[in-house]
Amino acid sequence: MNVLIYGSGQLAQMMYLSAVPLGIKVFAVNVADHTVVDPISKIKLDMSIEQAIDLADVLSVEFEHVPEDLLEQAQSSGKLYPSMEAILTGADRVREKNVLEKLQIGNSKHQIITHVDQIDEAVAQLGEKLILKASRDGYDGYGQWRLSNKQALPELKQQLAELDLQTVPLIAEQMVPFDRELSLLGVRSLQGDIAFYPLAENLHYQGQLHVSVAPAPAIDSQLTEQAQSAFTKLANEFDYVGVLAVEFFQVGDQLLVNEIAPRVHNSGHWSMQGADTSQFENHMRAITGLPLGNTQANGKCAMINIIGCDDYSTDLLSINNCHLHLYGKSVRAKRKMGHINLTGQTYPELAEVMTTLAKYLPIEHFPKLLDEADKLAQLD
């Protein structure tokens, strides 16, 4: 069985590593230069994309920002999972909002902005605290602008006036006073079977995910049912195959969808050590027609992103229940260099491992780690 992944970054690498024990061969497309590469070494392979598509039994993606000409070619093969429609929806906030409204899935109140003067109307309708998001190509806090009060509106409009909002509209969202951020990863098979991972709690810093804890603390059946209902509606709408991530704001006892990601997701990396079957293996299973694996968490798990640094001590590997995953990248500000998975049977046990880990890290690059450990230490 051969699988071709569009995108050749760390997610393709981790899919490759999960596929090897299943007898599945994975190769990847570098979408920047339209070459076919080995997902681990990044060495170019002696084949064209057309030849790779012919060789592959299944095509998939590691991220949603794949050029549309490549997606059209992939979709026309009849081998692409998830579908081009699902991928494009994940890549475009206007499409995403339209689908959420169509399916009556709760999300932040919003307006679509195609001209800078429409921001005045958005303020009138939604209030003066807004977050404006580029509808395409925004991630990790990029392509976002915040409005805290009306006095800052003229300066913001002047800044946004330089953008081509007809080509790439903005989504003006009411700034939600959420209690926390959660995400649900699920997987849907070719046969339509669905399996859910437990909800994860996500801690962001400067718009970028730093820590995920799974299962998220203080989750009741009502929150789980809301999240799984939203996932199921989306998965059925797209006849989805593979892993799908849905990110939420929790506001009291209500979940509002923040965004969707039609792929394996950073907030699911904990599953590599924290579940019987990782998100990467389950994606491979789903798109190749194999039975889905067990998604239940084995105890408690934390995933800590390594961002913009490499000056940690590899002696952290001496810590029990600590697993290091590096992506082989050169250091750059805000760049995800790898992640660390920690496990424990209870939240206090997990907190103890997190606190020990901090001794091996340049803590200024891990601003959420110790605060989260303190919180988890107080839980049963």
Rank of each mutant, 00 (worst) to 15 (best):
H269C: 08
W270Y: 10
M272F: 10
M272W: 07
Q273A: 14
Q273L: 11
G274W: 02
G274Q: 01
A275P: 00
A275W: 00
A275V: 07
D276I: 15
D276L: 13
T277N: 01
S278F: 02
S278P: 02
Q279N: 01
Q279P: 03
E281T: 09
E281P: 06
N282M: 06
H283E: 06
M284P: 02
R285Q: 08
R285Y: 03
I287C: 07
T288H: 01
G289A: 07
L292G: 00
G293C: 01
T295G: 07
T295Q: 10
T295W: 06
T295M: 08
Q296L: 12
A297P: 00
N298I: 13
C301Y: 10
A302R: 04
A302V: 00
A302K: 02
A302N: 04
M303L: 05
N305P: 00
I307R: 03
I307P: 09
G308P: 03
C309Q: 15
C309R: 14
D310T: 07
D311P: 14
D311L: 12
Y312R: 06
Y312P: 01
S313T: 13
T314F: 13
D315L: 14
D315N: 15
D315P: 12
L316D: 07
L317W: 13
L317D: 12
L317S: 13
L317M: 14
I319H: 08
N321P: 06
C322E: 06
H323M: 09
L324F: 05
H325V: 09
H325I: 05
G328I: 09
G328E: 11
S330G: 13
R332Q: 13
K336E: 00
M337Q: 12
G338F: 11
H339C: 01
I340W: 07
N341E: 09
L342I: 10
L342S: 04
T343L: 07
T343R: 03
T346L: 01
Y347E: 09
Y347L: 03
Y347K: 02
P348S: 05
